[in-house]
Amino acid sequence: MAQVDAPAAHDINEIRTTFVHNLAKGHTRENSLKIAQATVNYIRRIIALEKYENIEDLLNVLRTHLRYSISLAPTELVVRNIFLIAMKLAREENMRVLVGVDKEVGNPYDSLNTLWKAEENSANASATGKKMRKGLAATIKEILVELDSSRELIVSRAVLQLNDTVLTYGVSSSPTLRFFLESARRTIKMRQILSVSSQLDDHSGPDFTSSISLRDVAAAMTDVTKVLLPVSVVFPDGSALMPAGSLSIAHAAARHAVPVYGLAAFYKIAPYYSADAASAVNAQAGIGLPVKLADSLRHRVILSPVFDVVPAHLLSLYISNSGAVLPSHMYRLIADYYHPEDLTEEL
C-alpha cells in the first residue's frame, strides 16, 4: 500500500486522478486503443514512482490502483485487462529475477505435475523491488510496442476476395475497422462494402462504402459474403460484446450462412466470463432521449442498450493481432496474457 506522506505518493495520486478523469474527459469517448495506451503509460508511472519491496507489495499496489480506476470509470473494461496483463508480467519478472534469465519459467497453466516440480525451485523466495523495477519497466514497455503494432497487424490480415460483398457496422466508432477496410480496398477491389448505419451511429462510413439502414440488413444479407464487426470485449467462451444492433446482424448472417468476423486486438480479451456483462455495461450510458421527454418519464426505467452480447456460435472467426482465432479457442489465449491467481479475487 502506498504511503500517503511519501514524496512520491503525492505525485502518483495526482497521476491517478488525472488518469481517471481523463477517461471521462471530452465529449466523445476515446477509442479503446488510446485508452489502452494511456493505461500502460499510467502503469509505467506506478512502477517507477510507487514503493514496493517484493512481488506481493507490487501486486497490492497495482490492485489498489486498479480498484480506484474501475470504481470511478467502470465502463472502461480495457483498463482492467491491461492492469491484469501488467500484473502477470510482474509475476514473470519476479520469477525471472529469482530463477535467472536462461531457465524456463513455469507456466501456471501447465499440468499439475510440472507445476509441483517448478514450485520446489523457487520456494517462498521473492525478488527485491529494485531489481524488479528495472526489468519490469522494460517488459511493460513491450506491451506498448505490442499495442502500437496491434492495429497494423490486424489490418495486414485484410485480404478479401474479388467477388466479396462485405457488410460492416459501427465503422465510424472503430478506427481499426476503418483502416482494415481501407487496406482491404487497396489490395483488391471488392464488389461492394455495405456500411450499416443506426440512429446512434448515423455518420456515414468512408466514401467507398454504401450506407444501408439496420432494418434493411435482413434483405441485403442474401448478397453479402462476409460480415465484419468491431468488438468491444471478447469473453473466454468466445462470445463478445459488440455495439448494439450487432446481434440482429449476426442472426441475419447465421440465417444466410454468411461468416461473421470480429476484429479484436489482444487487450480486448477479458479474462473471465461475466454473465450480466451486457446489462451492467448497458446501464452505464447516457439515455439519449430529449430532456423534456426523459424528465416526464422520470418514474420509468429507460433502457438504452449500447452493447449486445453476441454468442460464440454466431461468430465464425476473430481476427486478432496474433492471428485468426476460432471463438472456441479463445480461452487458450487467456493463458498468454493473464495469471490465474490475479483472476481469483473479485474486482
Partner: peptide, 19 residues
C-alpha cells in the same frame, strides 16, 4: 440517477457501484 447527466454518476473511489 436516471442517467440524464451521464457520465456524471454516483461513482465513488474504491467502491463498486452496482446497477
Amino acid at each position: 440517477i436516471s442517467r440524464l447527466f451521464f457520465p456524471l454518476f454516483p461513482f465513488k473511489c474504491n467502491k463498486n457501484v452496482l446497477i
